[in-house]
Design a binder for these strands. Structure first.
Length: 479
RNA sequence: GGCCCCAUCGUCUAGCGGUUAGGACACCAGCCUCUCACGUUGGGAACACGGGUUCAAUUCCCGUUGGGGUCGCCA
């Protein structure tokens, strides 16, 4: 079987939306699964909205996610250029071919005229559908006026294709019209540019959001007009917000980098997004490599899905919990910037790595992780005064001092610390709960933390004893 | 409104004619426990409705309802 070539073709009109990531991901997964190629193409023909900054954000977002492209901007390839505004002459040439073969024609109707016709029809019959009436279809003159190129759509027949996700889709040609291929200024419209590029770039499978389904029939007509092989199409169900509408900025974070800044990791983002419209039995958690291994179109569903931040967070939690999904080294690298954001720059990498196992099961995001790592990296923990007022008080001072002394008296390992504490408690007929919270507040400045022995071990003897000493002093002074 | 698509717990989903309709998130209760988590046990929670087809429909067909998409010289 021929290795399939797939593509992701975003328009650089803003940040990379997570819906776009899902589309990119499915294409990328299939390319990697099959050993095919993944092409990135920038569709910048909307000159009003496209910006170089957006293009850069999209490239950076994909790189952050680990979705790499075999051909495209900044990596090149034999089918380039990969930005549509650099391919204008190609579109002009291909459009002329269609005109010469009477499969397309120049239309001199102005936008104003068309708008007026649309308005008039709407007034006469609000329910009617405006379609270009074919005014310029048979014009033979060539006035020196601005013109667009329109496709000459045969009103007979129907377009049929078998979607890899939705199955057979049929559209009668009479539902279509003489749509515009190329603007007056020579810049192609989406349907034309995409098809010409997909043909010349050898794209064999086009996977995109279901909102593009409406474009497929006219695109197939263009393929046929060129005598080109029609690719396979796979439309993906929509990702909606919790209200069931299209996901937008109003629904909270939708840009990839917003999630990066929220402390999400690429693997978790991809894991959450892949479950929109795709499943693998009961499995919820996947590594990127597993996804590449098991992804297929057959397991794609058709129903739209609603974005669930809670589930997303839980997937992120799973990824941070598992060393297999987020190895220590990667975890440290990723959490460092978040520690820096808390004023903890230049912390010891090895120390972070040592502390990791104490928070693995507790941290949901990297922001969360940095927060939970905080007290390991300060001379004195940031004290929760409410907690201090409750636990660092006279009534606990004696036990706290005793706990400090017994801890100090021997080997500084988790097991040894625990053994001495247990023996001490037994001798005093005390229970751990009598000293745990004061000690916790002393060591961490807060009422919730990993096991005291773990904290003390990671902190080390000197820092731990210093904190306990200070707490004892404070407790004795307090009421 | 025309055209297109969709329809299993609140959410993501498994199911591909015969199941006590499964899992995950979220929620509730218990256990574990030095706190927080983790883990674990259990619980509530779904086949939109109506017709067919069939010995048998969540599953196949049709309709209804509901939802979504799209109707540009945007992509």
């Amino acid at each position: 079987m021929e290795k399939p070539r797939l593509r992701f073709a975003p328009s650089p009109t803003g940040y990379l939306h997570i819906g776009g990531v899902r589309t990119a991901l499915f294409n990328w997964l299939w390319a990697r699964h099959t050993g095919g190629a993944f092409v990135l193409r920038i569709e910048d023909t909307d000159q009003e909205r496209s910006t170089p900054e957006s293009k850069q954000v999209i490239l950076d977002s994909l790189r952050w996610l680990g979705i790499d492209w075999d051909e495209g901007p900044e990596v090149g390839g034999e089918h380039g250029p990969y930005e549509q505004m650099q391919r204008l002459s190609l579109y002009a040439e291909w459009a002329e071919r269609l005109i010469a073969e009477k499969k397309a024609y120049r239309c001199y109707c102005t936008k104003a005229e068309l708008d007026a016709q649309r308005e008039a029809l709407k007034k006469a019959d609000p329910k009617a559908q405006f379609k270009y009436p074919g005014t310029c279809r048979n014009r033979t003159d060539k006035p020196d006026l601005p013109s667009v190129v329109r496709f000459m759509t045969d009103t007979a027949g129907e377009v049929v294709y078998v979607d890899k996700v939705f199955g057979e889709v049929r559209t009668p040609n009479k539902e279509l019209q003489d749509f515009v291929l190329v603007r007056g200024d020579g810049v192609p419209l989406y349907n034309f540019g995409a098809v010409v590029d997909d043909i010349t770039m050898g794209i064999g499978i086009v996977a995109r959001g279901r909102d593009h389904m409406i474009n497929t029939p006219p695109q197939i007509l263009i393929y046929q007009a060129f005598g080109a092989k029609v690719p396979e199409f796979a439309h993906l169900p929509m990702m909606l917000n919790q209200a069931g509408a299209k996901l937008s900025k109003r629904d909270g974070a939708v840009g990839v980098f917003e999630y990066r800044d929220l402390g999400y990791t690429p693997g978790a983002v991809l894991n959450y997004l892949v479950r929109f419209g795709w499943s693998h039995g009961d499995q919820e958690v996947f590594s990127k490599q597993q996804l590449v291994d098991v992804f297929n179109w057959e397991a794609c569903g058709r129903g739209d899905g609603k974005f669930d931040p809670k589930k997303f967070a839980s997937i992120q939690h799973e990824h941070l919990k598992s060393k297999g999904l987020t190895p220590d080294d990667e975890y440290v690298t990723r959490v460092l910037p978040f520690l820096a954001a808390r004023g903890l720059a230049n912390v010891d990498r090895a120390m972070v790595e040592r502390a990791l196992y104490t928070i693995r099961e507790r941290a949901t995001t990297l922001v969360d992780a940095a927060e939970k790592l905080d007290y390991y990296f300060r001379d004195e923990p940031v004290m929760d005064e409410k907690a201090a007022a409750k636990f660092l008080v006279k009534e606990h001072a004696e036990n706290l001092r005793a706990f400090r002394d017994v801890s100090a008296d021997g080997e500084w390992t988790e097991a040894a610390l625990e053994a001495r504490a247990v023996a001490f408690l037994a001798a005093k007929s005390l229970e751990m709960k009598h000293i745990a919270q004061p000690a916790r507040v002393a060591l961490t400045g807060r009422t919730a933390s990993p096991s005291l022995y773990q904290v003390m071990f990671v902190l080390g003897r000197d820092a731990s004893l210093a904190r306990l000493d200070r707490a004892v002093a404070r407790a004795e002074k307090a009421g």
